[in-house]
Amino acid sequence: MSIITLAHGSGGKLTHQLIEEIFYEAFKNDILLQQKDASIVPPINGKIAVTTDSFVIHPIFFDGGDIGKLSICGTINDLAMRGATPLYLTVGFILEEGLEIEDLKKIVNSMAETAKEADVKIIAGDTKVVERGSGDKIYINTTGIGVIEREVDEVSEIEIGDKIIISGTLGDHGISIMSKREGLDFDVSVESDCGLLNGLIHKVLDTSNKVRILRDPTRGGLATTLNEISSLSQSSMMLYEETIPVKEAVKSMCEILGLDPLYIANEGKVVLIVAKEDAEKVINVMKEDPMGKDATIIGEIVPHERRSVYLKTELGTTRLIDMLTGEVLPRIC
């Protein structure tokens, strides 16, 4: 069984072997293969969007994905949320001594496959190796570069009556990861929703020019994302409990663990705020895409003097949906 050792990070022969046999082999494209200190890309026509994200998930392989797929989807989705078409990615690896090379290959191949699916080139990279005990197998950072098609995220455009749309069921990623957490060997069949949203977003933006905001509700879940938007836009939101889609298996796990799906992480969902008149049109287009097949309206922007997010329960009572405050959860992204 071959493993990563400190020599793989020394810059010597083993480093080159790793780069050529694993990284170049999987990611190869004309820009990366310039093999220079910096890659030079052709001129880009339009405003450029840049984002970066680091991934430290445990476990590194899970139902529905792995840290590699996640590291590509996460960054591409962040670009898509601003209305950018993703073009390029850079990748930084921090490997822990002892990581099996077979596992690294699986992760790298999964990254290459996901990048290909998103039509994005990986154009620069870096690898460092840390001593055993100084990391947790593998950490990945990805930086994404995209070109703006139509800039989204204008909180100032939000109006009372705008609809809040979610692209599908909540909490799949967080619950999938938690069920594999050490000491919690739940036999649940929830796959992580880890996936690319750029295709879906493209279709949505082609359909409506009244999409106020796009966000992917990752860490902290939908509740935290909506609170961020509410505080930035100084608007209040009302969610309707019975409309919020959650899988039965996720509901059951949440019951057992005392969690609320509204606060659980998603990795392939988007929440949109759309003008009332365009909401139905947007939903119809979303439903045609596999990433948006369960899209539904879950709430709206309402007048309220305290700028907050509220939930109308099925019983007809109203309660505040606050931001997530520190909870003991495993690393999930």
Binding site: T313, L315, T317
Partner: peptide
């Protein structure tokens, strides 16, 4: 405490 949470979550205090 679990009852306290359940009471708040359902909002029945209001009703």
């Amino acid at each position: 405490g679990t009852h306290t949470m359940a009471i708040f979550k359902s909002g029945i205090r209001e009703l």
